[in-house]
Structure formats: C-alpha cells, structure tokens
Design a protein around this nucleic acid. Structure first.
Length: 710
RNA sequence: GGGCGAUUAGCUCAGUUGGUUAGAGUGCUUCGUUUACACCGAAGAUGUCGGGGGUUCAAAUCCCUCAUCGCCCACCA
C-alpha cells in the first residue's frame, strides 16, 4: 500500500512544487536541449498591483502553451515582466502622499519620480508572487520592468530615429491646464463638478449668442449654427458680417456645422478655439486661426484691451457690465446648471489651453502593418478581431504620444523659448546645457510598451534576439487597437519583422451578471483567493474551459468548485492505480487482453485530440475533453471494470490490466500537466521509476506520441 | 453617436465547415457505501435553441428583420 496516498487530496500541497521547478532551472531555455525555439512574452501587469482574473486567464493560457511545447521538446521561453502603469501608479502614490499630508504639487519632478520608483520597487514582489502562485513557468532570470534603463534607452532611440525619419512632428492639442499649480493634467486626473451659474445672451450682429464664459469672447470671429436650423435659413455658410463687440467692431463669419446644438440657447454660438476642446476641433476642421486669450496664470492677455491683466473671475462681471452699457446684453439666465471640469485632487477649475505635443504620423506605418498582414507575415486568429483590426488600421489618425505625467519616460526633446515664435528644438538623449530645457512630458505608455517584445529579448544586440519573432501574442481583446498595433509597428519599423506569428485574443472575464470584472466596479474575483480556496489547478481549469478564442467568459465560484472536485478525482484515480500496481515490474510484460488493447487505442485518440487542439489554440476544448475522459471514462468505467478483474480474473488478465492502468495513468498525467501542473507533478513523484516515467520531473518529460491528423 | 458581440435546461455555459434522438457543469428527484473518491456512484425529469420571416431535402448553425443585454471606441467608426 502507498502510505502517502491514504490521505485525501489537499490543495495546500501545491505550494511546495513551484520552488522545485524554479530550482531545476528548466524555466530557462538555456538549460533545455530542444533545437526549435518557442517563445511567448507575457504582457506586463502593473508592478504595483495584484493580479486579477483577466491576468489569470491570460497567464494560464500562455503557460499551457509553454508547458505543452516544453514537453514536446521545444526550447521554450516565457518572459515575465511588469509595467510602471503611469496614470494609475502616480495616482496611487499621490494618495500615499496625501496620507502623509503632502502633495505632488510643488515637488520637483525628479524627486517625485525617485520616490514613486522606490515605492513601486518595494511592492513589485507581491505581484510577482501572484504569478508564481498561479504556477506560471516563466524565466525569472529574464524579468523586465518597463522603466528599466535599457527600456528607457531603446524607447528614446526609437523616438530619435522616428524624428529623423520624419515620422514624428510637433502639433497642437487641447489639454487640461491647472493655472494655480502650473501643470497640465491627464483626463483621469480631472473630474466634472456640477455647478449653478449664469448663462448670458448677447447681441452679436443679427444673432443672439449664448455663453457661460463672456471673458473668453474677445477674439471670437466665427458664429456656428446648425445647417438644419430654420431660424438661420436666410444666411449662407461662410457669409461675413460686421458686428459691434466688446472693444469695437469686428468682422465675423458664419459657419454652418452640425456641432451646433439647436436646442441649446438660441442655437447660435461663437467659438474660442484656444480655450475649448470642441471649439478647437472645429477650428481644425475649417482651418481657422486660433488665438490665446487667457495666459498660463489665468489672466487676460493684451487682446482683451482695457481688461488685459485681469483675473478671469474678476473680468467676467466687468465685461458683462460693458456689454450692457453698449446695449448688447439681451438677458441673463440665472439658473444655468452645467458641469465644470476641475482638478481631481485640488478642485481647481481647469482652463483648457492649446499646447504643442508630439505626434507620430500613422498613415505609412499603418499601411505597412496591413501589408504585412496581407502577406501573412502574422495572423490574427479570430475573424472578428481581424475585421476590427483592419478597420482601425485603415483609418489611422496621428498618435499623440505626449503625456502630462511624471511617472513615465521623459521625452528626449530639449527646448529654448518653448511655445513662442522663437522656439528651438534639439532632440537628444544626452543632458543639454546652455539654457536648453527638457520637455517635461513623458511618453504615452503604449509608446514604450509597444517595444515590449523587442526590449524583453534585449534588442538590438542580445543573443536572446534569436527568440524573435515570438510565437504568439495572447492577450485580452481590448488591446486589439491599443497595444497590438503598436508592437507590430515598432517590430516592422526597427526589426523589419512583426514581433509574433500568431495573435490570439481571449475575451473579457465577466461576473455572474455578464458585467466585465474590474477594480472600479468591485465585482472581480481574485485568482489568488480562488487558488487559496479551491487550489491553483482548479482555478486554472476554470479559466480555460469554456473560454474559446475571442469570447467573453463568465467566472463564478461554482465553476471553480467543480474543478476542485476534478482535482480530487485525479488524486483518487492515482491512488487506486498506484495501490494496485505496487511492486510490479513492467519491463517485460505485454498487454494481452483484447479489451485492454482497445482501451489503449482509445487513449491514443485522446492524445491526438488534446495535442491537435492545443496546436490549434483550442485549449478550451482540449481541457473539456480531458475532463470527461478522466472522470467518466477512466474513473467511472475503466476503474470500476478493473475491480472485478482484480478480484476474479486470471493472472494474465490482471497483469495486462495493471500494465494498461499504468499506461493510462502516466499518459493522462502528461496530458493534464499543462492544465493542472501542480497535482500532476505531485503524483508523478509517486510513479515507480523507469518504464513510462522518462524523467523525474513531469514538467520536462516527453509528451505522449500521437498521430498527426486524427 | 459609431463599431463589435451575445440571446440554447431553474442557473452558468459548450455545440469546429448546415446532417441521426441538441450536450456539459451546477441545481432537482429516486436508489446505492462493493479495492480510490460522499469533493462518490447508478438511474431519471427538465429545452417552441430570444420573437418573426427567408434560403435548403435538411437550420441552434446561413441570410434579413425586430427586441433585449453586454463590451469597446468616442475628431478615427
């Protein structure tokens, strides 16, 4: 009797195995004998966060592919890494600062960067332990962080190369400016606040225009009405008018555009492109001049005439007063409710301003990406996603890569007389003296993470570049137009080759109500909690089964619980088989019974099915098939049948069956290993040496032989 | 506003290119403890495959339409 197997299965035994795998060195391809490379790069999770169920699905699928190919004899590499997660982490750290009664405003950028860096480094191991807990067989000796020196250096090199090749230019964009703290803010650093205010109606030539911000209107020269608005039918698009305005007569032009809201006020509005996102877009559409009215401190510029230098809050009433005197004020709506954009943390009202930002020209790069797809240099596995991808890439707009945060890679651009007519630019990674000031903006996170397959493999000259291009990029479907195109673009641009051969996108993980799991909704199921409660193997199974490529999956505890029972089943099958083959020597015996030959032939079919489906990225179907084979065939039928043979059969029948059971068990363990690595490795230790046990570690034992196209 | 997808047993979902009697898990009913396992086994009940129309010898599967839900992107659509 096997003493150890008298105990029931407990998932807690899993924790001992990962160390053993890691110490064996076989996560590192340098220690594998295979000739053909098989490499997958893991999308980097937030270094400062925990893994969520999306990562669970993500990493489990990759690990299945890696473990399968390792057993198939490939030289496999799964590269781990972590992301600095710009916005999110800076926000987290600001909360931390708040607890200490401090604020990022007033801090030097460099000091803040250093503090966040140390903060993240001290938390990174938590997320990494999460990956280990899920049993992911990645090579930790190649671990990467998105702010490692070489990543920064490579991203900057690409920026410089693209600038010199004419792919990068400086263009204007409307940003959120905090005038008190003299900084621009990202979208998520701002929020809307409902406010009750006044809405003014002024005479503007033959029109009545409505506005909540009279102080911005000095240089407004364009009136917008809806093309279908019957009130303005008699006027023509681009018709000119001379109108009396705040500081005397000006020439105004009428534009008919659908942006105008007929329901709002009089249906006519004037635009102030420098201080409004929507107006700026209109100005770009019609190629209108844009003029700054309010300076960076929130005071009026000389264009305001007698009001120049006044704070906008003071100026407003005075301007209304003047217009009233001139007889241009029609009426004031006192109860105007609207949402004002304010700084998320300081509640300071945001002043939209136009600032120059860096853009990447996308037309040629996108076209090249599509050409490469047409030439089948890489494949997108699901047709739906290929359609979305093609559509997106066929209509590229230029990519704004400037971000107004500190926690990122600072753009290697230097200025003299920035944002003036005399602006001078120098692009360089080196520190510049003589009055040159570096751009305070950082790269959009996708700019640096677009280099991920390159930098994780040590681009440009590391030996690891032999793993480039990688085999497959497997990630959440939401990244089809964020990350995937960027990686392909940079791969093609720098290395003349797409960074992966296949693109496999899994869906989003949803809760029981079909809502996407996310931190903000608080409906997530932590894969770590699930692993604690039901075991990692069960959790992995639940991530895989019923998760076909591209489809959303719903994760519930009931599902995981079902696979915990499955783990128990595997354990007890093994217990039964091991107890019955105890002390047998299989070397010279053959399977003699016809029934047993049939069982082994059925087993071959399982091997073929599982193998071929993993190759086709249908891990979901492979896992489901294994589940049914192991439970309802092996346990329910074969084991039950064996009991009567062992009780009443002839010696020859018994021997034949024992041999058959051992073959079925060892083969099943191999087939199951990529899906449920822990329990299979634990049981593998108990198999008698020799015969089917070709290596001490199941992880690197040989995948069962199979027929190719069954 | 635009795009994409889903709708199959009480619940959560499979169903690969159309092809016998539509399948799993979970839940439910009855029975059962014999060489692993009660985290078990055996047997069973449950479905107008969202509604309507079309193509076909044949539709859960292909086409059209309506309804409901979800996801993504919002100067790209």
């Amino acid at each position: 009797m096997h003493k150890k197997f008298l105990k029931p299965y407990e998932a807690s035994q899993e924790s001992l195995i990962y160390d053993e795998w890691e110490k064996s060195g076989y996560f590192n391809p340098d220690n594998l004998n295979g000739k053909t490379n098989y490499c997958i790069v893991m999308p980097p999770p937030n270094a400062n966060g925990r893994l969520h169920s999306g990562h669970g699905t993500d990493f489990t699928l990759k690990d299945i592919l890696i473990r399968f190919h390792r057993m198939m004899g490939y030289k496999t590499l799964l590269v781990p890494g972590s992301d600095h997660a710009g916005f999110e982490t800076q926000g987290e750290y600001e909360k931390e600062l708040k607890k200490q009664g401090r604020s990022r405003f007033g801090m030097k950028d460099k000091d803040l960067y250093k503090e966040i860096f140390d903060f993240v480094m001290s938390h990174k191991h938590v997320m990494e332990n999460d990956i280990k807990k899920l049993g992911i067989s990645c090579d930790w000796s190649r671990n990467k962080f998105t702010l490692d020196k070489d990543v920064i250096s490579t991203s900057c090199d690409t920026f410089i190369k693209m600038y010199n090749d004419g792919f990068i230019y400086r263009g204007k964009k409307c940003i959120h400016w905090n005038p008190k703290f003299q900084t621009s803010l990202s979208d998520i650093e701002t929020k809307f606040k409902d406010e009750k205010g006044k809405f003014y109606y002024f005479k503007y030539g033959p029109f009545t225009i409505g506005t909540a911000r009279p102080e911005t209107k000095f240089a407004d020269k364009y009136i917008i009405v809806h093309p279908d608005d019957k009130r303005y039918k008699q006027y023509k698009h681009k018709q000119k008018f001379t109108v009396e305005w705040i500081n005397g007569p000006i020439e105004a032009t009428l534009l008919k555009d659908e942006t105008a809201d007929m329901e709002m006020g009089s249906g006519a509005m004037t635009i102030t492109p420098w201080h409004s996102q929507v107006d700026f877009e209109l100005a770009c559409k019609y190629d209108l001049p844009v003029e700054q009215i309010i300076d960076w401190d929130g005071k009026l510029l000389p264009v305001a005439g007698e009001f120049a230098g006044l704070k906008i809050s003071v100026a407003r009433e005075k301007i209304v007063e003047k217009l009233k005197t001139k007889g241009l004020l029609e009426r004031i709506d006192e109860n105007y409710e609207h949402a004002v954009r304010v700084c998320d943390r300081t509640n300071i009202v945001i002043e939209p301003q136009i600032k120059s930002q860096w853009f990447v020209k996308m037309d040629k790069l996108s076209k090249r990406t599509l050409d490469s797809l047409d030439n089948k240099e890489y494949k997108i596995l699901t047709k739906t996603h290929e359609k979305i991808f093609r559509h997106w890439m066929s209509n590229p707009i230029d990519w704004n890569i400037s971000r107004q945060i500190i926690w990122g890679i600072q753009i290697p651009a230097w200025f003299k007389n920035k944002d003036t007519d005399k602006e001078e630019i120098k692009i360089s990674k080196e520190i510049q003296k003589d009055g040159w000031v570096q751009d305070t903006d950082t790269f959009d996170t996708w700019f640096s993470s677009g280099h991920w397959p390159l930098v994780t493999l040590g681009y440009p000259d590391s030996k690891d570049m032999e793993f480039y291009p990688t085999q497959v990029m497997e990630t959440g479907a939401d990244l089809i137009f964020k990350w995937i195109p960027r990686m392909i673009i940079f791969g093609l641009y720098l290395k003349k080759e797409a960074p992966f051969k296949d693109i496999y996108l899994h869906g989003m993980t949803q809760d029981a109500k079909g809502v996407k799991m996310s931190k903000s909704k608080g409906n997530g199921l932590s894969p770590l909690d699930l692993a604690d409660e039901f075991g990692t193997d069960a959790t992995r199974m639940s991530f895989v089964v019923a998760t076909p490529p591209g489809m959303n999956t719903i994760l519930t505890k009931d599902k995981v619980r079902a696979y915990k029972k499955f783990s128990n089943k595997i354990w007890n099958i093994s217990r039964f088989v091991l107890e019955n083959i105890e002390g047998e020597n299989f070397e010279n015996k053959k399977v003699s019974s016809l029934k047993d030959k049939e069982l082994l032939s059925n087993l071959d079919e399982e091997v073929s099915f599982v193998t071929n489906h993993i190759k086709k990225y249908r891990m979901d179907l492979a896992a489901e098939r294994l589940y049914h084979y192991v439970w309802h065939e092996v346990a329910d039928k074969i084991l039950e049948d064996s009991k009567s043979i062992f009780r009443n059969g002839k010696q020859e029948e018994k021997d034949s069956r024992k041999q058959t059971l051992y073959t079925i068990l060892s083969t099943s363990l191999k087939l199951l290993h990529p899906f449920t690595p822990f329990i299979t490795e634990i049981i593998w230790k108990e198999l008698p040496d020799g015969y089917m046990k070709d290596d001490k570690l199941l992880m690197i034992s040989k995948w069962p032989e199979h027929e190719e196209n069954k």
